[in-house]
Every structure is written in C-alpha cells, then in structure tokens.
Write a protein that binds this DNA or RNA. Structure first.
Lengths: 212, 212
DNA sequence: GTCAACCTACCGGCCGGTCGGTAAAATAGC
DNA sequence: GCTATTTTACCGACCGGCCGGTAGGTTGAC
C-alpha cells in the first residue's frame, strides 16, 4: 500500500490553517508571529497545531508554495492563452494586482520572507519566483523587439512592475476609496502608460493630434 | 544648565551603531535580529551596547527618525528649491531612488517595520511618513491641474511611485549591472513616462510627428 | 578621582518543539 | 448489529535555549 492521499476533511482543515496563518504572518511578520499565535487564532493549542504541521519553517514554506500555486493558476496559466503581447501584459498586471488585493489570498507577497526558510527551501521558492520573473521580462523583451516598448532596461522595468504590484498589499484597503478592480486598473494605466510607446513620443518632439 | 549635546565622539559612535544596526535589520528583519547580533557586529557585548541605547524598540525608533531625517535633508528640502513642478518630480524620484540604493543609507525603507514600535512611536513615524507622502501627492495634484498629468488617481499614483522606489532595496545590488545613477534614471523614465502627458496621447488618437 | 566605555554573569519569560496522554470517530471482526 | 481495535484530532505539561534587559563590576583616559 502506497502513500495515500489525505482525507478531504484533513485537506480542508489544512487549507484553513494555511489561510489563517498567512493572514497573521502577513500582518505581523513571520518572526513576530509565534506558533502559539497561529494555534490560538485557530481555536486550538500549539500541540494540537503540531498535529498538522511539522515545523514553523515548513508551515511558511507550504504557505509560500500555496501562494505561488495561486499565482500560477490565476495569472501565469490564463496569460499563456492570450496571443497579443500587449493584451497579455495588461492581463498579467491586472490579474496579479487583483490577486494581491484579495484579503484572503494576499499570500503571494509573503513569498518575500524567504530568509526565514532553510537554504534548501529558500532555493526552491527563489527558483519558482525567478521563473515568474523571467517570463514577465521575456514578455517585455518581446514587446521591445516589436518596437512597442519605450527605451528602458527590461530587467529594471520588470522589477518596477512587481514593486508597484507588491506594494499594493501595503496600502490597499478593502474598505478604502478604490475597489480592487479600480486599483488594478489604475496600476495598469500608470505602469503601461509608462512602458508602452504611444506611436512616437519625446520631450523634444512636437505632436499634432489628427482625427483617425 | 540645560540638556547638553553629547560629545562629538559619542555622536560618531552612535551614528556608527545606527548604520550597523540598520544594515543588519534591513537584511534579517527587526524581529529576527537580536540585540546580541547587533552588538557582536559592532565588536562588543550586548551589555556594552546597552550603554548607548535604552532599548531595542527605541533603537529602531531612532534609526527610523535618522532615515527620515536623511530623506528630508537630501530629497524634500532640495526639492523645494525647484520651481518647475515637472523638474521637481523628476528630482524627487531620482534623489529618493538613489538614497534607497545607497548601501549605508538604505535605512529609509525599514521605516516600514512600524508595527514593531510602541503605539506612540508608531504614530510619530507614521505622521512623518504621511507628511512626505502628502507633499508628493500634492505635487502630482499640481501637475494634474496644469494638465501635465495623465488621467490617474493621484493617491494610487503616489503609492505606485513609492512602491517602485522602495522596491529598489530588494533588487538593487552595488555590484549589479546598473549603477545607482542608472537605476534611478530608469525609474524616472519608467514612472514619469507613465505619469506625464506627452502633449496628447491615447490609444484611440492617431498622432503625427511634426518637426518643431 | 571621576567618568565614559565597556565587561561578566545573571534574570524572568517566551520561543519552537516534544511527550504522553485522551475522548471520540472510524474501521474491523464476528 | 454489536463489540474490539485502531486512528484521528486534539490537550496539558514540560524541555532546553535564546530573548530583551539589568546589576555590578573593571579599566583606562583625562
């Protein structure tokens, strides 16, 4: 008899543990969050929680992979179905931004607590992040070749995009002035307005508007 | 006899303590950094360090104010001397970005470990950050009124700017492909290209280039 | 002889993690 | 259908260790 998949109930409880733990860690930071904090938030004791997890680091590692799974499923995979490069970029920024604003699922960005992991775990997470990064930069390169990108360093531009998106988690509030969709739309406007060449444009060039 | 300024030597040592502590906290995070770590990095014991500081939280608070002082002196104050709004924005983004890339002075962004402070300390830091934020947003508003800004939410735009700038500390390396000046220039290009209206521009408007 | 600049030694407390249970639910044997 | 056994899902009590912080020196410069 081989390793058996856990029962559906167990998986549900695990997901609940991940979500609860992620919220607390996101708010207080990994190191400032004790295993006791997480257990209490789940209405159980630390020893009880250890029935489900094998260690604090492993919990963080699992949550990070959970978040990266989300990012892949909801952003990277759907994006691949979009042929037009500009539309694909638009989708990625918008979908990623909305993922970050989702209260429950704002898990993605705590992928940056990578120093808290063991070296081996850290390498795996860094590798997965890197794949996402390279894919995005590749898209920018593609746009550049097509002459649809301003004259910018695509590596720096990718970091700028991700910085803007990830920073959302610091300021976006569910009860704030903007909805998640509006905030995502603003991000798209601001970032792409800067990245995409608008036909032709430069401070030293005079432009005339002509009705198409 | 009123409160006397500490000796120059004492001040120098204090500054060294701040810089060293800031570097470690920046790398490992506040909670993951023990007072012992900081003391050892300074070649002394914990008790010796406590000769200079009054507590771990107070140390963090002092470092944050130190960073905000830098930001004020090197970005906010010089910016006030620039009359043209667009040039002022250009300067702020560039100068702030370069401040963040400075290995030693990358202190500014750990201003985000605000949850580690006491409520009273936190309020003071938040207040100072808010002043800087409001000033920057006010500048964007000014540009908007002058018709030199795209149709974006200035609050969201300010957060985007700061997100891009602060994110620099995560990816910029002194020994990387870009110098601090180049990275700052890229940031300016990317962010302002998106924020400033280039005479007139829209996906639905055809443009013709005319030699000025 | 004073005082700044450190030190060694120690404190209570919380940390991540473990141990040996237990009550209840699921499963097996008949 | 009823009991016997195993498994699941927890808990209370505890461990060694490091944490922030302190008390009380020692030493050397002025």
């Amino acid at each position: 008899m081989k390793a058996q998949k856990k029962s559906a109930q167990n998986n549900e409880r695990l997901a609940e543990i991940y979500r609860t733990a992620a919220q607390i860690i996101l708010r207080k930071g990994y190191d400032a969050t004790s295993v006791n904090d997480i257990a209490n938030a789940l209405g159980m004791t630390k020893a009880g929680l250890y029935h489900y997890i094998s260690g604090k680091k492993e919990l963080l590692f699992d949550i990070m992979n959970f978040g990266l799974d989300e990012l892949e499923e909801e952003v990277a995979v759907p994006a691949r179905a979009i042929k037009d490069a500009e539309a694909r970029l638009r989708f990625i920024v918008s979908a990623h931004a909305q993922l970050v604003t989702r209260g429950q699922g704002a898990i993605t960005i705590l992928v940056d607590e990578v120093t808290a992991l063991t070296p081996a775990q850290g390498r795996k997470i860094t590798q997965r992040k890197r794949e996402y990064f390279d894919n995005l930069r590749g898209l920018l390169d593609e746009l550049k070749v097509a002459g649809r990108l301003q004259d910018v360093d695509t590596t720096a531009a990718t970091f700028c995009l991700l910085g803007m998106i990830n920073w959302l988690s610091r300021w976006f509030r569910q009860d704030g002035a903007l909805t998640a969709e509006q905030a995502a739309a603003e991000l798209v406007k601001i970032s792409l307005g800067g990245l995409l060449v608008a036909e032709s444009r430069s401070a030293k060039t005079r432009l005339q508007v002509v009705k198409s």
